[in-house]
Nucleic acid binder design. Structure first.
Lengths: 371, 371
DNA sequence: CGGCGGCTTGAATACGCATTCAATGATTGC
DNA sequence: GCAATCATTGAATGCGTATTCAAGCCGCCG
C-alpha cells in the first residue's frame, strides 16, 4: 500500500507522450497516433506504444489535446434546481447519454431564479463544446456571445420567444389541457392552481392550457396561487394554506400543481394539516411524471414529459459529432405530452383498464427489484 | 436578434489575448496580467486592457491557461447513485462550496455497484485537481496512480481500510447504535434490518453498531434482509415483502432501514400493501437524515449525517489552495452522527420537548376538518 | 523494368496563455 | 545629489498534444 517515497511531496510525475515515445523508441507523433482511433499507424508499432504507455501509467492529456484540436469534448449542463427530482432525472439522462458519446459533463448549479450568465461565462472559459441550460434565465447578450463563438446552446424544458437559443420542451399547453380535461371529466366544479416562478414560458403555458380548456368547458374562473419562494415542495405547501385562507371564493375541489414536486407538497399539506385526501376530498394533479410522484403516498395523476426523447432531441440539435454544421437558431421543439392516470383523480369509465404508467414498478403489484 | 451573418457556419471567432493586446496597444503579457489577480500591472493599463477585452467579447481560455499552470481548477465528482436523494444533497453541497472556491465540477455517474476506474481515468485525462468519490468501488491500482500523479482523492461516506485514499464519513457504527438504542427504549422485542449493497464498510458498520448495541441489550438475533438490486427504494420494498414471507421467525416489531430512501420504500410497502403503519404496528428508522424523509408521509426517525461538515473536511483534505502540501494518505475521518427523532418511533419521555429537526415546516398541527 | 499511388513515419509547428528575464522608468533613502 | 530599491513592461519560452509536410517504403500495374 505504501511505497518507498512515503512522505513525498506531490511529485506530480506524469508521463508525457515524449516519455512514452522514448521508451517505445518511436517519435512523439507515433504516440499521438497510437491513441487516436483511425490514425495511420502500423498495428505492431501501436502495440509497442501502448505497452510502453502502460508501463509508465501514461494518461493522455486532454487539456493539451484540446488546445490543438479546439474541441474539449466537454458539455456544460447548467441546472437551476436539484431540489426538484425532475431535474435530477434530467441530469441522470444526460449523464448516461453523454458518457456513451464519450463526452464529459461540467455541471453548474444556479440559484433558482438567478440568471445563468455567470455560469455561462465560466463554461465558455473552458471551451466547452455545447451548453445545456435547464431552469434558468439567460440574457440575449449571452446567446449572442455563444453564437459568435460557435457554441450551441439548448434550453431544456423551456423556450424564449424570439431568442437565438433553441429549446426542447414538451407541449405544456397541451399538457395543461389534459389536466383540465381530466378534472372536468371527473365532474369538478371549482378549480385552483399552484404555480411557482411566474417568469418563464413553461409555467405560463401550463396555466394557459389549463385555463383555456376550462373555458371551453364553461368554467370562467380558476384560483391561481403563486407559491412563495418559487417552485418547491415547501412553497407549494404554503400556497395551499394561503389558498384555504381565502374566504372570497368557494373551496376548490380540483387542484393542479404546476409540477409534480409542488403537487406532492400540496398533497402532503392537504393530508397532514388539513385532513383532506385526494381524490376523496379534492382532486389533485401534477406535471412532469417523476418517479417519486408515483409512489405509494401520492400515486399522482400527472402529465409525463418524455425525458428520453427530449434528451435525444437536445443532443441532436447540438451536432456534437459534426461541429461544422451551422448552429440551429431559435428552434422551438415541443414534444407531445402524455396523461398518466394516478389515483388522485377518479378514472373515467373509458380509462378503467391498464394504463401506461411512469417507469416504476406496477403499482401495488409484486414489487420488482430493479430501479 | 439575428445579426447580419445569419446563415453563417460556426465561425468560431474567439478573440485571443493577442487580439486584445493589439486593440489595447499593449503586449500579450499585459493582457494576461490584467486578468490575473495580484499581477503587477498599472491600474490605468489594466483598465485599457479590460475595455478592449469587453469590446471583443474576450473570454480567457482556461484550457490554455491550465496547460502552463498545470492546474485546471476542476474537481471531479464521481457519483454512484442519484436515485438516492442523499447523494443529490451531497452534490448540491459540493457544487455550492466549490463554486465559492472558484472551482468547476466535472461529474461522473457510475452504475451502482460498478467500479469507478474508468471514470477516474477519464477524470485524469482532464488533469483535474482532485477527485471526490461517492458510492463506488475503487481499485488500489487507481489510488496508486492518483498518488503518483499527485492527485488527491477523497472517499465520501466510505473508507477502505488499508487504502491510500483518504475518506470522510460519519460514525456509522455509532449511528447504528443510536437506532438500536431508540428501538430498545421503545420496548421493541424483535428486530429486523434491510440492507443494500453488502460490500462497503458503510453498510457493514451500520449493521455492526446496530447488532452490537442489541447484544448489549440482551437481544441475540436480528433478521437481516438484503435488498435485491442494491440500495434502492424499490429494493427495500421488495425486501420487506421477503421479510414477511419468512415464517421461521416472529414478525419483527422494529425495522431499521440501512438508509433513508430504503426506509421510505419499506414504510410505503408496509402501509400500502401490508396495511401496517409506523409506529403503531412497527417501529421504523433510517439513516442519513435526508430532507425527503422528514416529509408528512414519513416523518422518519433517523440518524443525520453532518453533510456540511463532511463536505468541509473533504475540501480541507484536498488542499486545493496549496497544491504543494503533501497529500494525506489513508486518513479516515469519522464525524459524529446525530439521532433525529421522527414519528416512526415513540419518543421516550426524556425527549418529549422540542428537538432540532430537519428544515421543513412543523409537523402536523390541529387537524381541522373543514367539512 | 519503371513509375505511381498508398501507407507509415518523424520533424517541425501551432494552439493560447503564464511566467521568467532583462530592461526601463520611477521612487525612496541617505 | 546619487545610489539603490521597486514597480512596470515586453520579448521570449514552455506547457503536451495534433497535425501538416515531406520523405521513405512497399507493392502493384502496365
Amino acid at each position: 500500500m505504501s511505497d518507498s517515497t512515503d512522505g513525498a511531496k506531490r511529485t506530480a510525475s506524469r508521463a508525457t507522450s515524449f516519455d512514452v515515445a522514448a521508451l517505445a523508441r518511436v517519435s512523439q507523433s507515433a504516440v499521438s497516433r497510437a491513441f487516436t482511433p483511425g490514425a495511420s499507424i502500423a498495428k505492431e508499432k501501436r502495440d509497442r506504444v501502448l505497452e510502453a504507455a502502460r508501463k509508465l501509467n501514461y494518461v493522455p492529456n486532454s487539456i493539451a489535446s484540446s488546445l490543438s484540436t479546439k474541441r474539449t469534448n466537454i458539455v456544460a449542463v447548467i441546472l437551476g434546481n436539484l431540489r426538484n427530482p425532475f431535474y435530477v432525472h434530467v441530469l441522470e439522462a444526460f449523464s448516461q447519454r453523454l458518457k456513451a458519446l464519450g463526452r464529459q459533463i461540467l455541471v453548474f448549479t444556479v440559484e433558482p431564479g438567478a440568471d445563468s450568465d455567470d455560469a455561462i461565462l465560466d463554461a465558455l472559459r473552458y471551451q466547452i463544446d455545447a451548453i445545456i441550460l435547464t431552469a434558468a434565465q439567460i440574457s440575449t447578450r449571452m446567446t449572442s456571445i455563444c453564437h459568435q463563438r460557435g457554441i450551441p446552446i439548448v434550453l431544456f424544458n423551456r423556450y424564449i420567444p424570439g431568442s437565438d437559443a433553441s429549446g426542447v420542451r414538451c407541449d405544456n399547453v397541451g399538457g395543461g389541457r389534459l389536466i383540465a380535461e381530466a378534472f372536468l371529466a371527473a365532474g369538478a366544479r371549482s378549480f385552483a392552481m399552484i404555480t411557482g416562478d411566474p417568469r418563464g414560458t413553461t409555467s405560463q403555458d401550463r396555466v394557459r392550457g389549463f385555463v383555456e380548456r376550462l373555458l371551453e368547458g364553461g368554467i370562467r374562473r380558476a384560483a391561481i396561487e403563486e407559491a412563495p419562494g418559487l417552485s418547491s415542495y415547501d412553497g407549494a405547501a404554503a400556497a395551499v394554506l394561503a389558498l384555504f385562507e381565502r374566504r372570497d371564493r368557494p373551496r376548490p375541489d380540483a387542484l393542479f400543481g404546476i409540477n409534480d414536486i409542488m403537487a406532492m407538497g400540496a398533497i402532503d399539506m392537504l393530508r397532514g394539516r388539513l385532513g383532506l385526501t385526494a381524490p376523496r376530498d379534492m382532486l389533485v394533479a401534477g406535471f412532469d411524471g417523476i418517479l417519486e410522484a408515483n409512489r405509494e403516498p401520492y400515486r399522482l395523476t400527472t402529465v409525463r414529459q418524455p425525458i428520453d426523447d427530449m434528451v435525444e432531441q437536445t443532443l441532436a440539435l447540438m451536432h456534437l459529432d459534426d461541429p461544422d454544421t451551422p448552429i440551429a437558431r431559435g428552434v422551438d421543439m415541443p414534444l407531445p405530452a402524455q396523461l398518466v392516470w394516478g389515483e388522485t383523480t377518479p378514472r373515467p369509465p373509458g380509462f378503467a383498464s391498464a394504463e401506461a404508467r411512469a417507469a416504476t414498478p406496477r403499482r401495488r403489484g409484486p414489487a420488482r427489484s430493479r430501479n
